[in-house]
Design a protein around this nucleic acid. Structure first.
Lengths: 198, 198
DNA sequence: AACGAAAATCTGACCGGACAGAATGTTTTT
DNA sequence: AAAAACATTCTGTCCGGTCAGATTTTCGTT
């Protein structure tokens, strides 16, 4: 049954995520993944072409999930400022989630130079992020705010700051700084977008 | 001779930098490093405790060199705005340098979670970067600009944006975007710092 | 329902290659 | 000749991927 197989694949990917988070991208072995998934090593080969293939699908699933989440968040809000807040909040979902996701995502980014498929997935992710940023800026401009910002470069800067903040937060390895970076990130973007409180 | 030994160590570190840039942190072998340095594998063991030790010294040397460079740059300028420009320019030194440095630095960041010594070196680097940011903001405030910015969080945001921009630029793997990100990074920080042209 | 063969799924021992670090050998310097 | 610097070989370990066989599931037939 296709559903059962899909479930198994997800199980392996979940295990891979946690295994990488704990042991590191480079250190993690097929045996580790198998142990985390409570299956034998053969199962991984059965559902995936090889180790790289597991990683590829994990990266694709992770980035897609993040985008869906962020996009859904901004769509729930009506005004540009609220959309921005929702975007940043979605990016800074929770300390634990962010820690796992970003640790692993960072390892993937480091591999992008060595792996064309990883690069493609990340490029798609970037485009999606920029799309969100563009939507927010455009909405703002139709509201008469964010007027001095160029949409494309603005969306690039927004994502750069979000990633930069999350990266810095991750490196400092201090959960309590999560809201600090989240809020400062939001405020910084807002100031940058030249928003003047009415 | 201590100088000769120091030269050899630097030679190995330079080779390691290039080897990692080409082959990737995880893929690179002691033999690769030896080949890049035009020495035999034994030399590396002779001058360093082990592979991890080579990496550690490379990271320390890289981050220190970057900081010295950036700090020297801002000291040459008198006004806060010029210091900021110099800081960003120093961070975006040249496409080729940035590519090599940032590729390798990114790999180190990914390892920080697995390696306490790497983390410590990076924390020192961060503190140095924040120090530069603080200097610039403080100077600005004594000039009567940048008045609405909190110094500490401001320095955090400045570095987050620089790193975020360099990361995004690196992932897009397009040399011609180097000045685009450099200039937008500068403009964005300036807007954020609430600078109003006289 | 019961059966059983075929298909799907799963297991873990095994193989071959790669590599870090050690050990040993060689050359150069002092 | 002794020590330092450098080169080469060796060894033990580890890991990804394979594969032959075990186990479970599926499904047509009676």
């Amino acid at each position: 049954m296709s559903t059962k197989a899909e479930e198994r694949r997800k199980q392996v990917l979940r295990a891979t995520l946690n295994a990488i988070c704990d042991k590191g991208f480079t250190t993690v072995t097929l045996q580790d993944i198998a142990d985390y998934a409570d299956v034998s090593k053969g199962v991984i080969s059965y559902y995936f072409k090889n180790k790289e293939d597991v990683f590829y699908h994990l990266l694709a699933a992770m980035t897609d999930r993040i985008f869906q989440n962020e996009y859904a968040a901004i769509q729930k809000e009506e005004y540009a400022v609220d959309k921005l807040r929702a975007y940043v909040n979605a990016a800074f979902k929770s300390p634990d989630d962010n820690r796992v996701f970003y640790r692993v995502y960072l390892e993937f980014l480091a591999q992008v130079n060595q792996n064309e498929r990883f690069r493609e997935v990340n490029n798609t992710f970037y485009k999606n992020c920029w799309f969100i940023g563009s939507e927010i800026i455009q909405k703002g401009q139709s509201e008469g705010i964010f007027e001095n910002v160029e949409i494309e470069s603005g969306s690039h800067m927004i994502r750069a700051l979000i990633d930069g903040c999350l990266l810095q937060w991750l490196m400092r390895d201090n959960k309590s700084l999560h809201t600090y970076y989240r809020d400062n990130c939001y405020e910084t973007i807002l100031t940058y977008l030249n928003y003047k409180q009415a």
